[in-house]
Design a binder for these strands. Sequence first.
RNA 1: GCUCCCAUCGUCUAGUGGCCUAGGACACCACCCUCUCAAGGUGGCGGCACGGGUUCAAAUCCCGUUGGGAGUGCCA
Length: 471
Amino acid sequence: MSTDAPRYRFAPSPTGYFHVGGARTALYNWILAVRQGGTFVLRIEDTDESRNQPQWTQGIIDALAWLGIDSTDPHFEGPYFQSANAAEHVAAAERLFASGHAYYCDLTSEQIQERAKQTGTTGYDGYSRDRGLGPGEGRVLRFRVPEGHTIVKDLVRGDVDFDNATIEDFVLLRGNGTPVFLLANVVDDILMRISHVVRAEEHLPNTPKQQMLWDALGHGAPQWAHVPVLVNEQRKKLSKRRDKVAVEQYREEGILADAMRNYLMTLGWAPAGDTEIVEWQSIVESFRLEDVNHSPAFFDVKKLQAFNGEYIRLMSIEQFVEQAEVILMSPGVPWPADRYRPEMFRAMAPLVQTRVAVMAEVVPMVDFLFLAEPPTDDASFTKAFSGDVAASTLEEIAVEFESITWNVEQIKSAVEAVGERHGIKLGKLQAPLRVAVTGRSVGPPLFEPIELLGRDETLRRIRLALARARR
RNA sequence: GCUCCCAUCGUCUAGUGGCCUAGGACACCACCCUCUCAAGGUGGCGGCACGGGUUCAAAUCCCGUUGGGAGUGCCA
């Protein structure tokens, strides 16, 4: 491999479900690595921290693969685990101490706070800078921040100038000797020859510190790029506690991977032209960090669903059936597995496809076909049968149904005939019928599923509803 | 508090000094289509935060104000 092929990295920590914000950052890195013939390194930042759980690591890998970021692709490298490099992190810290870039300090957090309080300042004041302390139990290693300014050259934001005087001598090694994130992160990036660090904006304030570390360790800093965070309707950074951010959850609801990645790419950036729904390939070809917006973007589930609906309608009927059956044949479904009839769903599929935004909505659209009894919705039932002629016209429809040829056209004309007799429009007339057969007041077109259900079952359901209406 | 970032319709965005009486998408509203609901079609509502400059010309450049956000850990 050529040494100047760019190396990007994505470095999540396995502390929970995979976050949509992380997904977007991963996508950015992936697109750039693929297009530039470079590498996407996945590094799991699992250093200490009680929150880390092994199962989250697999979750990240699965979610990335779902989005098309796959270890079978030659651009993919990893996963690496930060914890495996602990010795390197400590060694780097020791080098920094040996070269005078870092020093030990024996102050406790409480003592530091006490000193700050007395001088009316905040943070650490550099107390041990020149005390010449060596390593020891409970002593932390701190970086000696040099005087001057640190300019972070950022592909998204341009040059950002930090006055080093505003940056305190930060900790590299904890009192127990373990390295902190800042150090581990930089050392790993150096070790893995990372050339481009593309990550969320929240890391921007850390960046001058990391850049000083790169310098002190004898390396030129990588190309930085800080992309805006994703926010909720309150304009706060998306949080796992408060907001619905799990990629897995959207996936389970039936958001399509193509829709998710396309939508994610329209946050902070937009494909050229008047359409937002575009081929993935064209995004890969045209995405540029320089074009990424500078302000936070609201993650709008409604718009995600609209995108998903578009993608659903873009599918061929075969693809739609295949995707739908992932949910229809899953254990979460309300009917016993052996009552599912693939041929029935296939017949209904075109009618369902234009009516769902997420795949999970397919279930309530066809459940009445597979359930022994239609679901009961008291409010719909009461409303549908509230008119004085509702029951009697349904009765007449049942009579017609007994003798007609059983197909969609005849079923429809039978209902229409009853309507004409009473001067009632089809739209109104079908309400009691719909509730009797499907249990709901809205749903896909009625006559097709009635044909599918068969004469006997349809009549049975009508009589049952009639009996109930007359109670 | 301090440091840094940001500011075009409600939301996501196009716009990089004249093509902008600011374009598209989602949402919303109306109408058409229609067996309910959708989908689809047509139309509508709605925005350059504010104040100063620079310029023949500013949404676009500069300064300030205001408003948002992020970071301020011996978390990552």
